[in-house]
Amino acid sequence: MSEERHMIPVWFFVGILLFIFGILIFVTGLAEWSHPPATELANLHPPVWWGALMIVMGGLFIQFTRPGKKTK
């Protein structure tokens, strides 16, 4: 999208946000590992794996759409 005008693709912004949010959620999950919150199924540590998933997704979006990356 908008390659002719060198606009940063929306996917890059999506990646940045997912990556930042993923880190915040992942770190929060690790910090509360030994004393999980009083939510249901907290013993499964959902913030850790959900945060990790978001970091990976965000990282992939950033990697493949970062400004300056050459496209075919």
Partner: peptide
């Protein structure tokens, strides 16, 4: 949301 989402995830849900 309140039942399953703890800190961080709740912020994501509200966002």
């Amino acid at each position: 949301m309140a039942r399953y989402l703890g800190p961080g995830l709740l912020g994501l849900g509200i966002t």
